[in-house]
Design a protein around this nucleic acid. Structure first.
Lengths: 159, 159
DNA sequence: ACTTTTTGGTTGACATCGTCAACAAAAAAG
DNA sequence: CTTTTTTGTTGACGATGTCAACCAAAAAGT
């Protein structure tokens, strides 16, 4: 297993530790993710709701840009959410193509409920730690976010 | 009876910071995950290969326990991998039900190749950091793994 | 004006992913 | 020797996601 040492002094141990953490955190996130599934809505649907709520009114193409979902797929997600009365697709007055997406009261309630559940879940995890452990966790997370790329566009809405 | 026994003094800011990190890292991991897709094999298939290699010979039910994959789904994955000559399903001598799963040389090569690619990818990320930044990242990751639950069973094989 | 191109969105066809229940054969338990 | 459990396969199916064709409105080029 040769590793071209053209670049800095990065050890195999560091690389493996990095990958180990990624596996670890994938597993950790997997546990949280199942909570969304229990809600009866897919992650894509919840993310879509979340985006629609973020800066209304948004058009489908805004949501597409923000989430990276496929055009056709998103169209069906939106139709589904509209059928479930969670959002409203309102034709834009100034542009006959776009439809403004708005949360209905029912959608608002659902989204708030999901966010509340996610917060409670997060709180449970944090509660299991002591005060100083929690502080250290917070510091470490801030460090990692500062050090790794992607702070700007990162908005996956998972836990 | 102190109040904070029931619920420690966890602030909303902490909860939101925690969730923000989870979103951030989900997004970060998403980038890495696409590399597996480029290999022509699904994450589930690669994880299966990885498990088979971990402590051979393993039976399907061992892999099932380790990965959490559905029984029928795993069965099809194994058939597919066998069709592709990446693994061999060898009937166990002492138990007519189980089939021992073994990597073929071709499977070995593929798995090594994937691991190598993943390491290079990881190295690229680490290379983008300075020495002291990398040290801090390593410390932070170790901290988080130590503080959060799941160190024992965590083996998702993602990056 | 009137063509051409681009944009926003829908639809159909389709592959993949993943779950569930029914099933068979071997082994273990009774 | 019957019953139950374990191991694995299969069929059916829904959910997820991708791709290309398509349409109508708008923007751009002439």
């Amino acid at each position: 297993m040769r590793m071209s040492n053209a670049i800095p002094h990065i050890t195999l141990e560091e690389i493996d530790a990095f990958r180990r953490f990624n596996r670890f955190y994938t597993s950790f996130l997997g546990a949280l993710r199942n909570d969304y599934l229990r809600s009866g809505f897919s992650l894509a649907e919840v993310r879509t709701l979340y985006e629609i709520d973020a800066q209304p009114p948004r058009a489908a193409c805004d949501v597409m840009a923000a989430t990276g979902l496929d055009k056709g797929y998103l169209s069906r997600i939106l139709s589904h959410l509209a059928r479930e009365k969670l959002i409203e697709k309102r034709p834009a007055h100034n542009d006959g193509r776009v439809k403004h997406l708005l949360l209905t009261p029912k959608g608002r309630v659902l989204l708030d409920d999901l966010q509340e559940k996610a917060r409670l879940e997060a709180r449970d995890t944090l509660c299991a730690l002591g005060d100083e452990a929690r502080d250290e966790l917070m510091r470490s997370m801030r460090s990692i976010m500062r050090l790794l790329p992607g702070h700007a566009a990162g908005d996956e809405h998972t836990g």
